Computed example of a mutant assay.
Amino acid sequence: MASPSASSKVSLKLLIDTKEKRVLLAEASKEFVDFLFNLLRLPVGTVTRLLTKKGMVGCLGKLYESIENLSDNYLNIPPQDKNILLKPSTPFASGYLLLANDDNINSSGTSNLYMCSKRCSYVVTSADNTACPSCQRHMNHTVQFVGNDRNATQVIGASGGEGGFVKGVVTYTVMDDLEVQPMSTISTVALISKLNVKDIASLQERVVELGMEEGIKLLKASLQCKNVLTSVFLKNMAV
């Protein structure tokens, strides 16, 4: 199964309780479950940048802004600079993660490597524009990566070339609080009963799409509440 690109959209079938105005569960494909699992691999710096400083809950936004505003005179460089913290390399191929349009990830899913224009000692870095430890020039000349990136290929090849974390032959149930389990008719009926649905006639199926915008909203909601699917998809939907 081909992986979705960062600009693609993933379909999701929601089971909605229109009377209570809540999403009971979602019928999800491999792509959506891979997306959810990949959220756990995002560096905190990437999460902060994706949600923007003002969108962050707590103090991480202020911490991020402090690093942005801190003069280089106070940083312990060379060889590292702010991008190590502000734009950390995402540890997974962008094709499997809608949010990972990171500057340090190339189309093959491996981290880009950079050196300065003088190629001082052939020192390389994964953070673009890092100050060279020898000449202080920006290390922004891309170096071709040859061979396998263990971090990028370990999960990609784990399921016989299919990629991602879960198998594509299975449909998955994703609850409003993002609990994930393989779908079956019996388990779905049991879940509906457990969720205390008072009027079966009020249940309705809706197909929605998850793209970059919805992905960021879902990431933010997952850090703020336990009714994530309801928060992201029902807010502007007439039910």
Rank of each mutant, 00 (worst) to 15 (best):
S134N: 01
L70R: 09
D103A: 01
F233V: 06
S126G: 01
G157Y: 15
E20F: 08
D149T: 02
M237K: 07
R150D: 12
N69C: 09
A2V: 11
K19W: 00
S8A: 15
A6P: 13
V180T: 09
T230E: 01
N73G: 11
S117P: 11
E31K: 06
L195C: 05
K198F: 06
L113D: 00
P4I: 09
S126A: 03
L218W: 06
P43N: 08
V180H: 00
F32R: 00
A158L: 14
R22E: 02
V174K: 12
V174F: 13
S3D: 05
V123T: 12
E214C: 03
S89Y: 08
E27R: 05
L85G: 05
S193K: 11
F165Q: 03
I216T: 14
G211L: 07
S66T: 10
N104H: 15
L36S: 06
C116H: 08
G161S: 14
N112G: 05
G58K: 00
Y64N: 00
M115I: 07
I77V: 07
G61D: 05
V169Q: 07
M115A: 04
S111I: 04
F165M: 05
T90I: 15
L24D: 02
E209F: 15
V197R: 07
F37E: 13
E213K: 14
T185Y: 13
V155S: 08
S5P: 01
L85H: 03
T188S: 14
L219F: 10
Q224A: 08
N38R: 14
S11L: 12
V208I: 12
L24R: 00
G95E: 06
N106Q: 11
I105N: 02
K198D: 12
F35N: 06
K54C: 02
S5R: 07
L219P: 15
N236H: 14
Q204Y: 15
I16R: 14
C135T: 10
I192P: 00
